[in-house]
Amino acid sequence: MASSSKEQLSSPGGILPFLIKYNTVFIFVLLVVFSAFISDVFFTSVNLSNLLKQVSGIGIISIGMLIVILTGGIDLSVGSMIALLAVAFALLVNIFALPLAILMTIAIGFSLGSVSGYLVAYQKMAPFIATLALMTVARGLAFIYSKGSPITFDTYGGLYMSNFANNSFLGIPNIAIVFFIIVILAMIMLRYNVFGRVIIAIGSNEEASRLSGLKVNKYKFLVYAISGALAAIAAIIVASRTNLGSPNMGMAWELDAIAAVVIGGASLSGGRGTAINTLMGVLILGLISNILNLLNVPSYPQQVVKGAIIIFAVLLQRFENK
């Protein structure tokens, strides 16, 4: 009685539901195959390692963005934080020993994130507003402390870092390894740890979370602080690649991070999303820029293509939710 096509659609073994379920991976593979066909430079190790280096910074803040978005919030400050923290790191590494400079930068990132976290969790400010304010403040501070121009590393510690940032281990760029480690940590925390359970619960029903006895405010505070700390790690990496910290770094990166998380199938209203899919989202965005660069497409049309892919990816997820 029931039409057979319907049964096909809903039977777990069919090919279409598989593609819909793993749509992000599907798009990713499609892009890789397409890129390989269209350009013979694509599959060279130089290009691939360049690609990875390019996405690592944005990738790291995307993971921070993911955990904030899982609680139903958003962090618009991360792009500007990269500028401020890159400048801070350049200043610090020129004064203090490298490990100390790294720790201090991360601590500053964590503290700045805590400000957003405090405003959102304890002052009940809308995340969009609180982090928008912080975004402006951070960019302003970056210009103030750098006096408007880039600050170059000029100590041994700085040179060591830029060496690290531009080298590879077993063919994989060091900074990509840092990114992948963060992805794996996030994956473990989200999937197997109470931390992940709680923030997903908060994102899917905040009132029910509160009435289940969860410390909602503490966790909401924490995700912004972590996002700030991750922005610090990203900033150190980005600054080290070019051997300097500039107040112009990370311009509009928060938007790319949001795009990556959304392409990865997370819901902006919270409660849904995974670290692996966000990694896919980051790689998809990186691939698009990479292949368009290889094809010598100028940057304005690139933006149009990027936007179109975002729409396509999100439309595909519609089916998944049906």
Binding site: N193, A201, S212, L214
Partner: peptide, 29 residues
């Protein structure tokens, strides 16, 4: 509105009140 997490699995709904019983050190489940 206050009792269940509609999008989450039955398992995640039930466990939410008592992580201590199902998780060990450092909160791993």
């Amino acid at each position: 509105e206050e009792g269940v997490f509609l999008p989450l699995s039955i398992q995640k709904n039930i466990s939410v009140t008592d992580f201590s019983a199902i998780s060990g050190k450092f909160g791993f489940i």
